[in-house]
Amino acid sequence: MDHDNPIRLRPVIEDDLAMFRRFLTEPFLIGRDWFGFRDAQGPARRFATDGYLGEDNGRLIVEVERDRAVAGFVSYMSGVYGGAARYWEIGIALLPDWRGLGIGWRAQAMLCDYLFSHTPAQRVQAGTQPENVAEQRSLTKAGFQLEGVVRACEFRAGQWRDGYLYSRLRDDPSPL
């Protein structure tokens, strides 16, 4: 672990909603995943519903322990293969100042460990764009393996684009 930037995952608090609104209303703050302007009041409604700790999806804040700075968030959403095999799909959004510091891969590995500890899921998966080499490295460091190309899975910047699918299974060793 990078001792200069030890991190932790924690539940969302009301003060975090301003960051979520920024990701929805500041073009390209989220990077390649900008899908246009979204409802800036949505985060407050979701927080009021379940504090972003839903049974089938949610978010946790990535906090840098040293100064309790919020670096971004991780997300998780459940899915089902074959009608019975539940899995989690995870994602991450870091604020620009915190990218490239080794925080992302650790946050994703921590989220996987958390999901494997608290749910019976056998699989956690994550997708990224072919041009996002930094996220591909991050997922690999977090213990994920590339499974393949998912063709035309994302509409972004006016066209359908391919994605890469990565997974980590319960029996795969944690890099932490």
Rank of each mutant, 00 (worst) to 15 (best):
R59A: 13
G72R: 02
L53T: 08
L53P: 00
S75R: 05
T25M: 10
A40S: 14
G79H: 03
A40D: 11
R45D: 14
I90C: 07
R86C: 06
G82M: 04
G58D: 06
D39F: 06
G31Y: 00
N57F: 11
D39S: 08
F73D: 04
L94D: 04
G36M: 10
F35C: 11
W34G: 08
L95G: 03
G54S: 03
A84E: 03
D56N: 08
F23L: 12
L95I: 13
P96I: 06
G31M: 10
G83N: 07
P27W: 01
T49C: 13
G36N: 06
Y76E: 02
W34K: 02
D97I: 03
G36W: 04
R66L: 11
D50M: 05
E55A: 15
L60V: 07
G91F: 05
A44P: 04
R86V: 09
F28N: 14
S75N: 11
L24Y: 08
V62P: 03
L29C: 11
S75E: 14
A40T: 05
I61T: 01
A71C: 12
F47Y: 08
W34M: 14
P96D: 07
I92F: 05
I90T: 06
A93G: 08
D56C: 09
R46Y: 09
R22Q: 11
G54C: 06
I61F: 07
F23H: 02
L95R: 02
W98N: 08
R45M: 10
R59F: 12
S78P: 00
Y81P: 03
E55T: 12
R59P: 02
A40Y: 01
D97W: 03
R38H: 02
A71L: 04
G51Y: 01
R45E: 12
F28M: 14
F28C: 13
Y52M: 05
G83D: 12
R46I: 15
G83K: 00
S75I: 03
G79E: 02
A84D: 08
G82F: 06
A44Q: 13
V64S: 10
Y76T: 06
A71V: 04
V62W: 02
G51E: 01
I30M: 10
A69R: 09
A48N: 13
Q41L: 14
G72H: 04
A85V: 00
V74N: 01
F47S: 05
Y81Q: 15
P96H: 05
A71D: 04
Q41M: 15
L29S: 09
W88Y: 10
I30Q: 09
R46W: 05
F23Y: 13
Y87C: 08
E55S: 14
E55L: 11
W98Y: 15
P43F: 03
G54I: 01
